[in-house]
Write a protein that binds this DNA or RNA. Structure first.
Lengths: 133, 133
DNA sequence: CTGAATCCCTGCCGATACTG
DNA sequence: CAGTATCGGCAGGGATTCAG
C-alpha cells in the first residue's frame, strides 16, 4: 500500500487542481486519528446507544467533546442520530453500514496495539536507558 | 474487537492499578493517530531513506516535526537510525520488523479511506446542505 | 546534511453555565 | 437529558537560528 498511499498523499509535482483531493484524504485520515473517534465507533459497534450511555461508556470524555465527536461522525455518515420527542428527551446513536466498515478497518490497528504494546514499552525504556547515560 | 477494545480501554470499575496499563494503550494508539507517523512509516515501507530524502518525500512536513517524529518512532522501536561518520553527515532510517507489522495494520485503514473517501465527502455536503437550511 | 533550541501563535479541549 | 456558547489554559507544530 505504501506506493498507493504515497501516490495519493505526495504533493510533489502534482497539479494544483489535484491538491484539493489530497487535502481531503488527509482530512478523512484525521478523522480516524482523532482522539475520540475510535472509542465512539467501537462503543457503538455492538449496538445503538443514547447520549448518556455513551458518556458513561467512554471513560474520560467530556460532555463537549462527545457532542462534537458525535456531530462530526454523523456529518461524515458514519452514524445516525435519531431523537425522540419525549420528556425528558432521548437521542439514540447507531453505526451506519459505513461506520461498521470503518470499525472493521480500524480493528486491525487496535489488535496491533494490543499485541505489540508491551514490546513498544520495552523499547522506550531501553531507549531512555541509553539516552539517559 | 469492540468488546476487546472496550475491555482494554474502558476505565469504569477497574482497579486503579490497572489504569496505568490503559493509559499505555491510549498512548500507543496516539502514536498511530499522530499527524505524521503514518506518512513516515509508509514512506519507509519500500526501503531505507536518509533524512533529506524523507523531507522531500513527505510533502509539507517541517524540519522540526520530521526530526521529532523520527526520534519518537526510533524510540518506540519502529525504525532504526544509522548515522555514517562522513562529511557531510548522512543518516539512514529504516523500518524494523515491528515497524513493518504496524505498516501492514495501518494499511487497512488507509485502504478504507481511499475507498470510502468520496462517500464521506458526499455525506458531508449533504449534511451541510440540510444544516444550512 | 542532521538535529537541537528558542520563539510564538493557533486551535484543541476541558470546565462551566445556560437553553429546550 | 441533550445540546450550545463562552472562556481560558496549554500543547502542537511552524519558522528560524545555532551547533556538530
Amino acid at each position: 500500500m505504501d506506493a498507493a498511499l504515497r501516490a495519493e498523499l505526495d504533493l510533489r509535482g502534482v497539479s494544483p487542481d489535484c491538491r484539493q483531493t489530497i487535502e481531503l484524504v488527509r482530512d478523512v485520515l484525521a478523522r480516524v486519528g482523532d482522539k475520540w473517534t475510535v472509542l465512539v465507533i467501537s462503543a457503538l459497534a455492538s449496538g445503538p446507544l443514547r447520549f448518556g450511555a455513551l458518556h458513561e461508556e467512554i471513560a474520560g470524555i467530556s460532555h463537549r467533546m462527545l457532542t462534537r465527536t458525535l456531530r462530526s461522525l454523523t456529518r461524515d455518515g458514519l452514524l445516525t442520530r435519531t431523537p425522540y420527542a419525549e420528556m425528558p428527551p432521548r437521542v439514540e446513536y447507531a453505526l451506519t453500514p459505513l461506520g461498521h466498515s470503518l470499525n472493521e478497518a480500524v480493528s486491525g490497528v487496535v489488535r496491533w496495539v494490543q499485541k505489540h504494546q508491551p514490546e513498544v514499552i520495552d523499547n522506550r525504556l531501553a531507549f531512555d536507558q541509553v539516552a539517559g547515560t
